[in-house]
Amino acid sequence: MKYLNINKIICYFILIISSIFFILPILWMFLQSFKNAKDTIAIPPKIFFSPTFSNYLKVLKNDYFWEATFDSVIVSLMSVSVALAIGIPFAYALARFNFRGKNEIAHFILSTKMLPGIVIAIPLVQTFNYINLLDTHIGVSIAHILLMLAVIVWVMRAFLQNLPIDLEEAALLDGASRLRIIWSVILPIARPGIVTVTALSFLFSWNDLFFGLTLGSFDVVPLPIYLTTEYIGYLAVNWGELSAAGLLSTFPIIIIVILLRDNLIRGLSLGAIKG
């Protein structure tokens, strides 16, 4: 019993130390977002100051911030839904059928996740320019699909493998078509897995800087690009507003995590146990 207590004390100690490490930059951002312009660049940095909401108000009143948010939402929704639509059927085929070349395709998809965007950026810009997709929502969304396809395919594959096959066989005997089986049998029971990959994919698209930067310019300015171009000048950074905008832009993620919390943990763990 004595061992147990020491063990717990060590655990708490480790957790507290690492919490400080992980929260420090966010705490600092939080403080910066309530400072006026003079306090943000004070030497030495101020921990005590008179807080102001002006940064948040300025950001919220800025039309461009809302346009960037709109762009980000459109791009994320389009890319996530298309990626799910082409990724889940393939994951299902991987999990349930044996056919030639399936592992090769699966490995290739995994390697797209690792491929840095820079390698394909230049030719992609040329191609998109040629077919008029440069600086459109569709263009950026197509590139974002690359970021999430590997996670969708591999996590959903592991997930679908864990589902019992009996239900599908019963439905097949009852004369349901295979597409119908996917739609009315597989998708409902695989919901936790789908929720998990959807949330992760959304995160990848929402946070992406590189493709937004190279494939969008005037008409499409997703949030990460907006934040880096609007508040960071050549000589100075508008710290207060940048921090406020940065914190505000995490709201959709927080909302998604809160809404999907139960499904999320279940999805992660179910998919995970078999790998």
Binding site: L209, G246, L247, S249, V257
Partner: peptide
């Protein structure tokens, strides 16, 4: 919580 912050913004911080 670091997962929720955009990498660009946290890197700047």
């Amino acid at each position: 919580s670091p997962l929720a912050i955009m990498p660009v913004v946290s890197a700047l911080t």
